[in-house]
Nucleic acid binder design. Structure first.
Length: 428
RNA sequence: GUGGGUGUAGCUCAGUUGGCAGAGCAUCAGGUUGUGGCCCUGAGGGUCGUGGGUUCAAGCCCCAUCACUCACCCCA
């Protein structure tokens, strides 16, 4: 009692009633869309051997070294709370040899991911993603389909203040030539780079391109664009993507600055960006990873996927859509124990028929119960006390216009069911 | 991991040069024996984030710590 109350873990959060309605709506919208386009749900575990992420993301990246939730279990195995879904889905695809019958598979999954970082706006340590992946399709239409789905989903959720950014990152054939050109420029520009970029120069040269420091921006003004270094295959792939997006009427921006941090990305990279979230501009991101399945020990199968930041999306949707919590259909105000006893039975019978009937389980005055009904926004209140039980007729009060009618206690549940189903129809 | 801002009632926040802990909203009760919203009256609710220090005296000053928050690094 005198000990401090237990608080939730830093960077974690509760999603409370009032918010969950919105989360469910987003989930339903996404699932319906995915199913319509032939995606199947896959549910993968929340933990994997650390090695899976180390191999897919890269052994000596910051992510693996210090930004994952990694710990040893009692046997000493290194385990990691998944930081993303893609690696696990690849693992599962390979482990169950899903490529054997038909390498083309489309998946979606929704669930929590984890990162061990200092939280900030739109970035939690447990966060949620809506994820979709296509395996076994090398053709650019897979890329377009995913971007199209993102656009459609956002439209259906009335999220309009967003831009799709697309870029190509090349492939193992053409990317090295680009990196070389970039390194040459960086070496020359080194004196005018900020200290962060000097570090990035060798470790993650692509990142220098989107540094915000003015000096770096100037130095990088004449930086080579990877689009100019694409090989013929990558180039025609990319032009099919942009051409097809245009024909489908999906607005997009070719963004030469768009960079993905991980080596396993190839060719198309895309992001949905918004201005609504401070420093966190991306609500969704994805790209092609043609080499990943092979590098994890599977056959050489191309793949592409995206992840939507659920928390960020929910925040945006919440700011534009009023929350609509449906009040109970009926409130039963019961006075005295005999009345409560029958009222409770009525409420359960109504609940079975899909009619929500709230009531006060404790002992409260009629006034208090009316106040509560009013606060809940209930339209109809059924009043049942001693005199009603005696006369075998209860009172049904319309809260909006204050009119009251009497209803016979005999077959009251059926009468109420009829009353409320008529109402639903006239509203619908 | 680094830096800034903020921690006082369920919520939003006042709190003066250090001098008895406050308001609005919300909750509960009464005004009306069994009828809601508006109004009036009253009540409950706080180890002032936590620990230490200075002081006759700390919500206020000092140190530490934790949390929240924004940004950086990084971005899956």
């Amino acid at each position: 009692m005198s000990q401090p109350n237990i608080q939730l873990i830093r960077g974690f959060k509760d999603i409370l009633p009032g918010e969950t309605e919105l989360w469910q709506k987003i989930e339903r919208t996404a699932i319906a869309l995915f199913e319509d386009f032939g995606y199947r749900e896959i549910r993968i575990p929340i933990m994997e051997k650390t090695e899976l992420f180390a191999r897919s993301i890269g052994e000596d990246t910051d992510i693996v070294e210090k930004e994952m939730y990694t710990f040893a279990d009692r046997k000493g195995d290194q385990l990691t709370l998944r930081p993303e879904a893609t690696a696990s889905i690849c693992r599962s695809y390979i482990q169950h040899k899903m490529y054997a019958q038909d390498p083309v598979r489309k998946f979606y999954t929704i669930g929590p991911m984890f990162r061990r970082e200092r939280p900030q706006k739109g970035r939690y340590r447990q966060f949620y993603q809506i994820d979709a992946e296509i395996f076994g399709v090398a053709a650019p239409y897979a890329d377009v389909e995913l971007i199209f789905l993102l656009r459609t989903l956002f439209d259906r959720l009335n999220v309009t203040d967003t831009t799709a950014h697309v870029n190509s990152l090349g492939c193992p054939v053409c990317r090295p030539r680009f990196k070389e050109a970039l390194s040459t420029l960086l070496a020359d520009a080194a004196p005018s780079l900020c200290s962060d970029c000097l570090r990035r120069k060798d470790r993650n040269p692509l990142r220098v391109m989107d540094c915000k420091v003015p000096g770096c921006r100037e130095a990088m003004a004449g930086a080579p664009a990877i689009l100019d270094y694409l090989c013929d295959d990558c180039s025609s792939h990319f032009s099919t993507v942009t051409g097809s997006l245009t024909r489908l009427g999906v607005p997009f921006k070719v963004d030469k600055q768009l960079v993905r941090g991980l080596d396993y990305y190839t060719r198309t990279a895309f992001e949905i960006q918004t201005g609504a979230l401070g420093a966190q501009s991306a609500v969704a991101g994805g790209g092609r990873y043609d080499g990943l399945v092979g590098s994890l020990g599977g056959p050489e199968i191309p793949a592409i996927g995206f992840a939507i930041g659920f928390d960020r999306l929910a925040e945006i949707v919440a700011s534009t859509t009023p929350s609509a919590v449906r009040p109970p259909d009926l409130y039963i105000a019961a006075l005295g124990e005999p009345a409560k006893k029958v009222a409770f039975e009525w409420s359960t019978a109504l609940g079975l028929k899909g009619i929500g009937a709230a009531m006060e389980y404790g002992d409260k005055s009629l006034k208090a119960q009316m106040k509560q009904a009013n606060r809940m926004g209930v339209g109809q209140v059924l009043i049942v006390g001693e005199s009603e039980l005696e006369s075998k007729a209860v009172v049904l009060r319309n809260m909006a216009d204050k009119t009251q009618i009497e209803i016979s206690v005999n077959a009251i549940v059926d009468t109420l069911i009829e009353t409320f189903s008529k109402k639903e129809q006239s509203i619908g």
